[in-house]
Simulated scan of single mutants.
Amino acid sequence: MFKNIVRNIFLEAENANVKKYVKQISGADKLDPIIVIKPNPTWVANYGWIAYNNAMDQFAIYNLNNNQRRDKNSRCIFHFRDIQELHTVQDGICNRNLIPNGFHVPQGLQANIALGTNNPVPIGRAYLVINLEIKKLEFLEDKKFFYVD
Rank of each mutant, 00 (worst) to 15 (best):
F146C: 01
K23G: 08
D57H: 03
P41N: 10
L98V: 08
E85F: 05
A111L: 11
A60K: 02
D142E: 08
V129Q: 00
I113M: 08
N4W: 10
N95M: 10
I123L: 15
L64H: 04
N118H: 06
L115M: 15
N40C: 00
D91E: 04
D57K: 02
E85M: 08
G48D: 01
K135M: 05
V89H: 06
D71M: 02
A16E: 15
V36F: 00
P33C: 05
D82Q: 07
R81W: 01
R96D: 14
D149W: 15
I99Y: 01
I9S: 06
N63A: 12
G108N: 07
I77N: 04
N15V: 12
K72I: 09
N131Q: 13
I77P: 00
L132A: 04
V89Q: 00
L115V: 05
V148P: 03
V6I: 13
Q90T: 10
K3W: 07
W43V: 01
I35C: 09
W49D: 04
I113F: 14
G116L: 11
L98M: 14
T117D: 12
N66G: 13
T42W: 04
G124K: 06
M56E: 02
L86Q: 11
V89G: 05
C76D: 03
M1H: 04
D142C: 03
N15R: 08
N40W: 12
P100I: 02
A51I: 02
V148R: 12
N131Y: 12
K30N: 11
F59V: 06
F146W: 13
G116Y: 12
N95Y: 01
L132G: 03
N65H: 04
P122F: 14
L128R: 06
G102R: 07
K143F: 14
Y52T: 01
V148G: 05
D29H: 11
V36M: 06
P41W: 11
A111G: 12
N101F: 15
P100T: 08
I134H: 13
L140Q: 13
N46G: 09
Q58K: 09
N8T: 07
H87Y: 14
K144Q: 05
H87A: 09
E141V: 08
L31F: 09
R7G: 00
Q110T: 10
T88Q: 14
D91C: 07
I35M: 13
E138C: 09
N73F: 04
N119W: 03
E138Y: 14
N54T: 03
G124S: 08
N63R: 07
M1T: 00
E138F: 15
L31A: 05
S26G: 05
F2G: 11
Q58G: 00
V105H: 00
K143Q: 12
W43T: 00
I35T: 12
A45K: 09
E12W: 12
N101Q: 13
Q58P: 04
